[in-house]
Amino acid sequence: MPRRNTFLEKQGYRILDSLPVVATFIGILVMWEGATVLFEIPSYTLPAPSEIGAVMIEKRWQLYEHSQITLMESAIGLGLSIVLSIPLGILIVYSKLIERTVYPLLVASQAVPKVALAPIFVVWFGFGLLPKVLIAFFIAFFPIVVNTVVGLSRTPPEMIHLMRSLGASPLQILLRVRLMSAAPYIFAGIKIAAAFAVVGAIVGEFIAASSGLGYMQLVANNNFEIPLLFATLVALSLMGIFLFYLVALVEMLLLPKPLRKSETGLEGSTL
């Protein structure tokens, strides 16, 4: 009798699949821990994982509060970049004029290391939330625009012919066919943008801030609290992973199954 995989079985397989990665990760932690003991590496050079863990537990509230600030800055920056990039991408594909004027400038502007804009933004917008959000936005912006443009222009022409032959309006073609076939590219762009946005927020905090994980790192650095420095790094990584999977979750909820296997159509994105 043919058997159908139940949901639980599938989840079971997924956990089995990720077992080697988890095992490797634990192996590295154990070796790290062992090395710090064996070679008597001082904690101010490389703290042991157990020490970092202890600091994370001890300073959990502080870490939690500062994470919230950084998360807010990155999320607003990412949100802004999503809301503005997708329409801009559509405009670039649909308007020859914008494609020839704005798009080349946008591509050329990527030669500017955006991280280096941070001090200027601080001068312009002060020490609050705004400059961090703007830096996060500026860094996250481009991958989404490029992926939207690439996705929209890779719509198979036969699909557009089909829609036109059915009497579909340009808006119907955009909504029902082009955006759908571009969706995997757009989501791939947003996933990259999510990681970039966190980088933007931290860089902003490095330069001028009184809160956030970047600020915490600076303080820990100045006070020579190296385990805390590593603890914030862990918090930052967890935040990046959280944002990535949040985007992946939205993708899973929004897109029908055949569109979910997103490939990266990213071209020329830099920090």
Partner: peptide
Amino acid sequence: GIVFQTDVLLPWLSVLGNVLLPADVK
């Protein structure tokens, strides 16, 4: 009604959804 050289089914729609596309658009 056009039948193209390749099927040109929209991969994100079910078979029924694809067959209903003309009714949707029109």
